[in-house]
Design a protein around this nucleic acid. Structure first.
Lengths: 242, 242
DNA sequence: GAGTGGTCTAGACCACCGC
DNA sequence: CGGTGGTCTAGACCACTCG
């Protein structure tokens, strides 16, 4: 039921109520929910408020409308889940593997300038360069180099980056990552990569570059990452819309 | 200006008007547009109608709001372009390259069964197997094998697949592709790939598998594709949300 | 305090669907 | 025909920002 005295907006309460209704009653895809006028009367609220709730659920892919017929429960709700920007740790857990990390190197630097440009920094700004070996079930999977501006992540300690850098950014620093741009190419392992990844010289590898941006008005770059993945242990999975 | 007599919804006319305003005046990112009340008065319409127009532009990533301050022009407008499922031809044109195609092989078959499973077909259903060499500016980029059910694409002729298979599906057959699932891995070129792609044995390649689904209630699989890309000429670019 | 976006109301007319 | 969603109105009060 909707509480009109609550500080929580009515349309939001109704969103939750409708979602509960769908789950609690185990409503099948394509089954109709109440009409907008019925919800309005049932809760003693305006139809426009009901529409706001339903609009939100439609854009979340939970409901769909058909003019003249009604509003119905959607088939699936992948929608938001498509092509999510995920950290290595999240990625591995999705694959039912246990992620771990070995820090190879962490230092502050002011170069190279190409990195400054990508991160939209001044040449004098200090950048952290972090090299980590990423493992899954204790087997080396990827060698990863992160560049991130010191002024955004303050004083980084080993324990901040021993598990998930994203988790540290989002939970401890309260930074919100909005989107990232990735490129994926193929190459052959060089001697440094061979050592850490325990593969042979000239074995194929996947080379991923990523730049991620914060969810602020300016879209501030927060990290530039280069990762080398073992081709025999890793492939990228991407779900795409058209 | 908005025409209240038109059959085109006012909120939609206003959307177009605001977009024009931004472009025509060359408004910079972060510059404010008129307030909701100002648009309402200027066009003699209700504020709620103005809000509907602005809401749409916000969800398209063209504007953003700040409570108590106003509504502003967004930095970029990547919008829906995120992680779009694109055909080879579309992909190349985006990169300012001229795509072309050489058909290597096209035949009907009823195997292998793994393909039938992926396309959710009966073992007796006929599948087209199409092998095409994809070029950009006349240079070979990828060797592509498509499996697609004959019953969905009817009688395929060479000229249907000499340019864009997606274009044929969507324009001639009126099929609408909704989403696809891709995997990307790295490998070394085998002897067949070497010949067509004009690279050397054991050069690195990108191996892409894709399965695409139609925009119908059942989400019918329409194609299973395996593509081998030259690593020295191609990399995947992906934009992702979080 | 003046202006902004956020929420909400109680109506209205329309186009469309299914019976 | 009655019911649905789609659009629209002319107000209202709120929380927030900024000078």
């Amino acid at each position: 039921m909707v509480n009109k005295q609550s500080k929580i907006p009515i349309y939001y309460q109704l969103e939750e109520a409708i979602k509960n209704e769908i789950n609690a009653r185990g409503m099948e895809p394509h089954s109709p929910i109440l009409s907008e006028r019925e919800y309005a009367e049932k809760h003693g609220i305006s139809r426009m408020t009901v529409r706001q709730a339903i609009n939100n659920l439609v854009s979340q892919g939970i409901l769909y409308r058909e003019r003249g017929r009604g509003t119905f429960v959607s088939e699936q709700k992948f929608e938001q889940d498509i092509s999510q920007l995920t950290s290595f740790s999240e990625d591995m857990r999705k694959r039912q593997l246990i992620p771990s990390t070995k820090i190879i190197k962490m230092n502050e630097c002011t170069g190279p300038s190409a990195i400054h440009d990508k991160l939209k920094l001044k040449q004098t700004d200090v950048i952290y360069e972090i090299v980590r070996l990423r493992l899954a079930n204790d087997e080396p999977i990827a060698l990863e180099t992160i560049y991130t501006p010191k002024k955004l992540v303050s004083e980084l300690k080993d324990h901040h980056i021993e598990t998930s850098f994203y988790h540290y950014l989002e939970t401890t620093l309260g930074l919100s990552i909005k989107r990232g741009f990735q490129s994926i190419e193929a190459g052959l392992a060089n001697s440094e990569e061979v050592t850490y990844l325990k593969i042979k010289k000239n074995d194929p590898v996947l080379i991923m570059h990523r730049i991620s941006f914060l969810d602020d008005a300016a879209g501030t770059p927060i990290e530039f990452v280069k990762s080398i993945y073992r081709a025999d242990r890793y492939k990228f999975n991407i779900e795409m819309n058209r």
